Computed example of a mutant assay.
Amino acid sequence: MSDEQMSSKEKILFGKATNPSNILPQKLTLDSKIKFRCHPGVKCFTACCGGIKIILTPYDILQLKKRLNIPAHEFLHQYATPVYLEKTDMPGVAIKLREDDHKCPFVTPEGCTVYSDRPTACRYYPVGMADFHEGGDEKSKDGDQNEEEKFFFIVKEDHCKGFEEDKEWTVREWRADQGVDVRDEMNKEWLRLVMRRKSFGLQATLSEQAKRMFFMASTDIDHFRDFVFESSFLDTFLIDDETIAKIKEDDVELMLFSFKYLAATLFGAQTMKIREDKIQAKVEEIKQRQDESVIESVQEYEKIKQQREMDKKV
């Protein structure tokens, strides 16, 4: 397929200017077949685990910190490096590569030491997914995301020998085998937040407070739990007892809850309700400030008026 034959959307993904070699110019569906197998016997084993930016989703961090049995903040300090998520001002983290060989800290010559809990990006490889509906809300008739806007592709790097293996899969089978389906479901609402922000472009920027909140909720579930239960959060938002019980003990439930909170605070989604008394208190506060401003204006006017009267007498 030449650049001239590509649609505008395909050029974004497959055009030589942006992807000179690694992405094959072919749109795949869930039923498309691929030949690929990675195992210790291939010559390039673990070569793809170095010199790469592995972005971590909230669920990735959750699973890895649990696997390593350390708090989220300790995981971030030891194994992650801060980044901005692609084409946004939203802060996130990527795996911190080793300084000596620029490889993932969890990889050894024998393979991945956290394989069953490896990040989503690692599970996808060499399959990629393109989603051009950045609002993230379009649905097809059967309730799934619009298939015209969502398709798959292959990343084929020169060093990779996995494509020379004789194992054949459909994209659907590959995703199921790698556990991608579960990860996608867990990451779905967070990715929608990122795509929604991305669709706004860089003309509008997030406040520093919003960035800090997004970062905490996305990367440090332990501190987010403290924020919910040790601040005025539950006095401000109307949260039912069942949800409170779930998020107090269950990290996954708390993570999913954090996505609703971010959607409400960053984009005004109707995912959470503020208590009526808090709304009324805020209204009264605004009214009080307005009243004070009016009084100050009247006082200033009276001063000016008095000064004019004095000037006339002079």
Score class of each variant (00 low, 15 high):
Val180Ile: 15
Lys33Gly: 05
Ile55Lys: 01
Thr46Ser: 10
Arg196Val: 11
Ala17His: 04
Glu4Val: 15
Val252Cys: 05
Asp166Pro: 09
Phe267Thr: 12
Gln5Met: 01
Lys150Leu: 09
Phe215Gln: 00
Asp184His: 09
Asn69Glu: 12
Ala245Pro: 06
Ile154Glu: 08
Met90His: 04
Ile70Cys: 09
Ala269Glu: 03
Leu97Glu: 00
Arg183Gln: 02
Asn146Thr: 11
Lys260Val: 09
Ser218Asn: 12
Asp144Ser: 08
Arg98Leu: 13
Leu97Ala: 06
Glu168Ala: 15
Ala204Leu: 10
Pro58Phe: 09
Lys167Tyr: 00
Glu285Trp: 09
Ser258Met: 05
Asp89Ile: 12
Phe233Ser: 04
Ser7Pro: 10
Glu134Ser: 10
Gly135Arg: 12
Ile23Met: 01
Val194Tyr: 06
Arg192Gln: 12
Asp177Pro: 07
Val314Trp: 13
Gly162Ser: 02
Glu149Lys: 15
Ile12Lys: 03
Glu249His: 13
Glu309Leu: 15
Glu230Asp: 14
Gly268Ile: 04
Asp142His: 09
Ser231Pro: 00
Val114Asn: 04
Ser2Pro: 06
Thr265Val: 13
Val42Thr: 07
Met90Phe: 04
Pro71Glu: 01
Leu254Tyr: 05
Thr88Lys: 05
Ala263Trp: 07
Gln78Thr: 10
Glu110Met: 12
Thr219Ile: 10
Lys65Glu: 01
Arg175Lys: 15
Val294Ile: 12
Glu284Gly: 00
Asp166Tyr: 08
Arg67His: 11
Glu134Leu: 11
Cys122Asp: 08
Asn187Pro: 09
Lys141Ile: 12
Asp177Val: 10
Lys211Trp: 06
Thr108Val: 06
Gly111Trp: 14
Leu234His: 00
Lys287Asn: 07
Gln178Thr: 03
Leu206Gly: 00
Arg118Met: 13
Met90Cys: 06
Glu292Ile: 05
Ser218Ile: 02
Gly162His: 06
Asp60Leu: 00
Pro126Leu: 11
Arg289Asp: 02
Glu284Gln: 09
Asp220Pro: 08
Lys33Cys: 10
Gln5Lys: 11
Ile244Asp: 03
Met310Asn: 13
Cys104Arg: 09
Tyr79His: 06
Gly268Ser: 10
Gly179Met: 12
Met129Lys: 10
Gly128Glu: 06
Ile244Met: 08
Glu253Tyr: 05
Gly201Asp: 12
Gly41Met: 04
Ser293Trp: 14
Gln5Glu: 03
Trp174Glu: 01
Phe237Glu: 06
Glu185Gln: 14
Gly50Lys: 06
Gln270Met: 10
Phe267Gly: 00
Gly111Cys: 08
Asn187Leu: 00
Ser21Tyr: 03
Gly143Tyr: 01
Val314Asn: 14
Arg275Tyr: 01
Pro71Tyr: 04
Gln209Pro: 08
Ala269Pro: 07
Asn69Cys: 12
Asn19Ile: 09
Arg67Phe: 14
Cys160Ile: 11
Ile23Pro: 09
Lys273Arg: 08
Pro105His: 02
Thr265Leu: 07
Asp226Val: 13
Ser8Tyr: 07
Pro20Cys: 08
Lys156Val: 03
Asp250Lys: 05
Lys16Ile: 15
Gly136Asp: 03
Phe163Ala: 07
Glu99Leu: 14
